[in-house]
Simulated scan of single mutants.
Amino acid sequence: MLTAVRAPEVLSDAVSLLSADAGALLIGGGTTTVPGLNRGTPTTIAVSLRRLRSGLAGVTLEGDVVTVGALTPLAALEREPRLAFLHAALATVGSPTLRSTATVGGNFFVEEPYGDVACALIALGATGTVVGPTGEEILAAEAIAADGLPHGRILTSLSFRLPPDGAWRFRKAARRALNSASIVTVAAVVVEDGGVVSTARVALSGATRRPKRSPAAEAALVGRPLDHATAEAAGRAALADAEAFDDEYASAWYRARVLPVHVRRALIGD
């Protein structure tokens, strides 16, 4: 049962509070943690970051490097003209009300099938800045999504490079076009040179247990023309990295069945 909520004004105090109690719960935007608390929890103390938002929210751009504070609401990214390529993807996540509260960093810690933002940032090659008892470290976004963070560590920001013009790809399949959990989400940055794919980062969500890259799909793309046959081959290859599961939105069978289709559609729109 929750008996205390701490809201430190200094990041180091938040780290100390978390480190001192192995059962302490960290609250950022609270869109998933607060409902869980309302349903009942053995957690006795929560550490809220609400008083740290001014320092852990916002978007900065230096050259082509974007840095996003971990407590930045998704709605703030939708209003950022320099991130226009992401707006369509963000619009598929929850409702406007949810996006005004849900944070960019928090999406790395929600259960699937809700990791669309993490999926997009993995495809963009993002790294996260993490602060803990021993100081600051930089981790790949895909590592944070896969493993979470040790207790006492706090994700403070995420950084990535703007993709080259025309290189960004995103596709989400859901029961409804908007405000629905993912059945399959595909995000990718695909760069072509001389008529063939020179580099590719493909990330999956919805059909995986955690948002993750698909090395098999990437290997199927590099060195080949980005045509229908290559996109289909990449879709089939992505199955090797899928971890389809059953839930109230779709069966594991259906997720695996439609994953290759949506990889192809993400890559070439066909």
Rank of each mutant, 00 (worst) to 15 (best):
R161M: 04
A123T: 01
G166F: 12
P150C: 14
T92H: 09
V131C: 05
F109S: 02
A200H: 01
P211W: 03
I122V: 08
E142W: 06
V197H: 04
S198G: 13
T129A: 04
G115S: 02
P113F: 02
T156C: 00
T103K: 05
E192Q: 09
N107W: 06
A181Q: 14
A177S: 15
A207D: 02
S100K: 15
S157E: 12
L204P: 00
A174N: 09
G148F: 11
A203P: 02
N107E: 07
A207F: 05
G94S: 13
W168Q: 01
V196T: 12
R210N: 12
P164R: 00
S180F: 12
T127I: 11
P133D: 15
A203S: 13
N179F: 12
S205M: 10
R175V: 13
A91E: 15
L139W: 13
T208R: 01
D116C: 03
V202C: 03
L121V: 05
E112Q: 10
F109W: 08
A177K: 14
E111G: 09
A167L: 12
G132Q: 15
E112D: 05
N179R: 14
D193I: 08
D193S: 10
G152L: 11
P150Q: 15
N107D: 06
P133L: 15
G206Q: 07
T185C: 13
T92D: 11
P96A: 14
A174S: 14
T103N: 09
P211H: 10
V189R: 10
Y114F: 09
D193W: 00
A167E: 09
A167M: 12
G206K: 04
C119R: 02
L149A: 00
R169V: 01
E192H: 01
E142H: 14
S95R: 09
I144A: 00
L204M: 05
P96V: 11
F170G: 06
I183G: 01
F170A: 01
V191F: 08
G166V: 00
D116Q: 01
S159T: 14
E111W: 12
K172F: 09
D147P: 01
R171W: 14
G148R: 13
R169P: 03
N179Y: 14
T156I: 09
S159H: 03
R153I: 06
A140L: 08
I183E: 07
C119G: 01
A145P: 04
R201F: 07
N107I: 07
P215M: 08
A102N: 10
R99W: 09
T134L: 15
V93G: 09
I154N: 01
